[in-house]
Nucleic acid binder design. Structure first.
Lengths: 140, 140
DNA sequence: ATAAGTGCAAACGATTTGCGACCGC
DNA sequence: GCGGTCGCAAATCGTTTGCACTTAT
């Protein structure tokens, strides 16, 4: 039986994650947390983000792009990702009614037992539309 | 101005990709193509899959899991991923009517210009439900 | 006191890149 | 022949892991 501990590092990581509405990557979290805990290791950040996600304190979101992102919110919702700058924002469309319709249809068509779904929108955020200074499209 | 060439490697890669209904990862493609071109390099496979995706011959699909997958089909559709074995199948739900409703609502809520969306279902495929021999849940 | 958690550095898996040789057009 | 493409090996990027040391309970 595991006996989880609320360490100082874990506490700060969760607090920082909840303090933002963005969806930071592990290394963005590392930079944020380092301001309070300068000696923290990137491995500790990864381990704790994983732990927080597995224990219902946060969610790990696997959207397009190379890095995984983390979300301090636990209720289900959808995401938009900017194709220019890579930022990920929430889409506050009600999930439940959509989910019902999709789930049953998907089960019929595929023979899977469906346990979840996610929707990722892609497009251009307002700030990227304004500064047309293309940044090399780092996030295709 | 670029002058793309249909090299032997590119041709075989596309042909192999179109010959399957699965959604192979780059290294699965490498193994498949190697049966015909034993000296091909994994780098060539990556470069060509990227090229095919960027030039409308295939799509790169970025679902959960560590590796990206490729799809020889270019018309839009959704995917299901098995949480046990990691396989990805198509979900033949009509995309257009769903897309319209979602797109406009997402734009309203976020201020993004939405250019696309993808839906990924997760669940358990029929063969994984039958062999309950858990394989360590390699694909969370 | 004990086992969960840490920091560090090294290992890892997936993908990308630099470069000289090669081959479609 | 020119320039796009190849194969190879090395480099890079994000993430995970082994290990000796801390620390919360």
């Amino acid at each position: 039986m595991i006996q989880p501990r609320m360490t100082h590092q874990r506490e700060i990581i969760l607090q920082k994650l909840r303090s933002v509405t963005t969806h930071p990557t592990a290394d963005e979290m590392y930079e944020m947390v380092r301001q309070h805990l300068p000696h923290i290791s990137i491995a500790t950040v990864y381990r704790n983000l994983e732990w927080l996600a597995n224990n219902g304190y946060a969610q790990k979101i696997e959207v397009g792009g190379r890095q995984k992102r983390f979300d301090g919110t636990t209720q289900p919702h959808y995401h938009v990702r900017c194709l220019t700058c890579g930022r990920v924002d929430d889409v506050h469309i009600p999930v439940a009614p959509i989910a019902e319709g999709l789930k049953s249809r998907a089960e019929e068509y595929t023979g899977y037992v469906i346990t979840g779904h996610s929707i990722e929108f892609t497009g251009y955020c307002s700030s990227c539309r304004h500064n047309k200074t293309k940044n090399g499209n780092a996030y295709p």
